[in-house]
């Protein structure tokens, strides 16, 4: 039987002129860390006939990330979108995504990127797996089907680890999994020709406004400011050999060279 895979993706902010974050298709792009899980799922679709749905949470202007995933080969996109979701922290986000995943159940596999390029917490995949009581393996770079489950592998702290995982399961995919594919133009035309993206509100998910958004978030970012990162530039003089000697000396002093 073919696997039913869901990939969770995010539109990340790439530009915030004047420090103001406005999420739109001009200021956002598909999280680069979500491309490897998409690629993993697309390969399973092509090689093993898996079905692929992409899931995201964000304002309607961020639905384009789902269209982009559809342009690459996903069959269906779900955008969880509701004004009450604004201000959700990673736990509230996981709660909303978890509710959407339950609505999409039964499924076999949920894939996440290891983190997002903007928030950079790495929370959402693991938290969602915990909320749904799914087995989770993080930073996976190899997936093989074995019997009714999967064998997955990863490299951690210099060790190669191999796991057998029963399904349904959740995985976060290591950024080095493989080179993500480029988006074909015909795929983009196809993704917009026929509406394949559905929008689900909180009521569709059976959630209340208290469970998500700022009210449902135990954490809050109170302030963000640019870190004061002063760089010191020092010019070395002398012959090339003398300069190389000075570099080696500095690196040894700093404990970077033994």
């Amino acid at each position: 039987m073919s696997l039913k895979i869901i990939v969770c993706v995010k539109a990340v902010v790439v530009g915030a002129p004047g420090g103001r974050v406005i999420r739109s298709s001009n200021s956002c792009e598909l999280n680069p860390f979500d491309r490897p899980p998409l690629e993993a799922a697309l390969r399973m679709k092509e090689e093993k006939g898996a079905s692929l749905t992409v899931l995201s949470m964000g304002p309607p202007s961020c639905a384009f990330v789902l269209h982009e995933a559809i342009a690459m080969g996903a069959a269906r996109g779900i955008l969880v979108s509701d004004p009450a979701l604004a201000g959700s922290d990673t736990l509230a986000t996981s709660a909303a995504l978890g509710a959407a995943l339950q609505k999409l159940a039964p499924f076999d596999l949920v894939l996440f990127g290891t983190r997002s390029a903007d928030g950079d917490t790495g929370h959402v995949g693991p938290q969602t797996a915990v909320l749904l009581d799914l087995p989770l393996v993080g930073s996976v770079d190899l997936i093989e089907k074995k019997g009714a489950g999967l064998v997955v592998e990863r490299t951690l702290d210099g060790f190669r680890e191999s796991f057998e995982v029963r399904l349904p399961a959740a995985l976060t995919i290591h950024p080095g999994f493989s080179e993500p594919r480029d988006v074909p133009l015909a795929g983009i035309q196809g993704a917009f020709e026929r509406e394949q993206v559905e929008t689900w509100s909180l009521s569709d998910l059976g959630l209340s406004a208290e469970q998500v958004g700022e009210k449902g978030s135990p954490t809050r970012v109170t302030a963000i400011s640019k870190a004061d990162r002063r760089r010191k530039c020092e010019f070395l003089s002398g012959s090339e050999e003398e300069q190389a000697e000075q570099v080696a000396q500095r690196l040894t002093e700093w404990g970077l060279l033994e």
Partner: peptide
């Protein structure tokens, strides 16, 4: 359009 923007980002 959203489609045009996805084209721009992808290319």
């Amino acid at each position: 359009s959203e489609k045009n923007r996805v084209v721009r980002q992808s290319v």
